[in-house]
């Protein structure tokens, strides 16, 4: 077994184990820490795929930003020692059946589909390429989505401040 295969199985094992723990843990702060592990392992998968920029974005934005935000909101809204009651049996059965059936269908169709990669030479993904694409308005340019995302972030920031502020 080669080294990158060992790495892949290690990372995907971590991802699957800690995703299950995230949704089954009855202490919410632990669930947040398990989610952090899942996100860090995912960035490891991105490094394996040689998308270094996306891996760095994943580490800083998801693992650094969103998880800290979630942990802050947990600390603001619940007690650390608080333990959830067990979820209702009906919910567990419905959720598991949905998950298993959907999973089986999706995996079956993945295995049946013939994936055909292009024969064109691979592009070397570096920061300069990404920046040129992101600011380009011509063919394969992403200037418009970039601007739309910046407006969306501004709008969500303003709305978050207005919603969470005390008194109106």
């Amino acid at each position: 077994m080669e080294l990158n295969q060992i790495m892949f199985f290690l990372l995907s094992g971590l991802i699957l184990l800690f995703s299950v723990l995230t949704i089954t843990s009855r202490r919410i702060l632990r669930a947040a820490v398990y989610l952090l592990t899942v996100l860090v392992a995912t960035s490891g998968l991105y490094f394996l795929l040689k998308f270094e920029f996306m891996a760095a974005v994943q580490l800083t934005l998801y693992a650094g930003g969103i998880v800290v935000l979630i942990i802050f909101s947990i600390l603001l809204t619940s007690h650390i020692s608080h333990k959830f009651e067990k979820p209702e049996l009906v919910n567990v059965i419905v959720g598991s059946v949905t998950g298993l059936v959907g999973c089986a269908t999706a995996i079956w169709s993945i295995m049946a589909f013939p994936f055909s990669p292009t024969t064109q030479p691979a592009l070397d993904v570096n920061m300069k390429q990404i920046g040129m694409h992101l600011m380009n308005t011509g063919h394969l340019g992403y200037a418009l989505p970039f601007e739309v995302i910046s407006v969306l972030l501004l709008a969500s920031m303003i709305s978050a401040i207005i919603i969470a502020k005390k008194g109106n």
Binding site: S19, T22, I23, N91, V94, S96, G99, C103
Partner: peptide, 12 residues
């Protein structure tokens, strides 16, 4: 599998 674990958690 990760996607459907998320869906399952959303329901449970």
């Amino acid at each position: 599998i990760m996607f459907f674990i998320g869906v399952c958690g959303f329901i449970i």
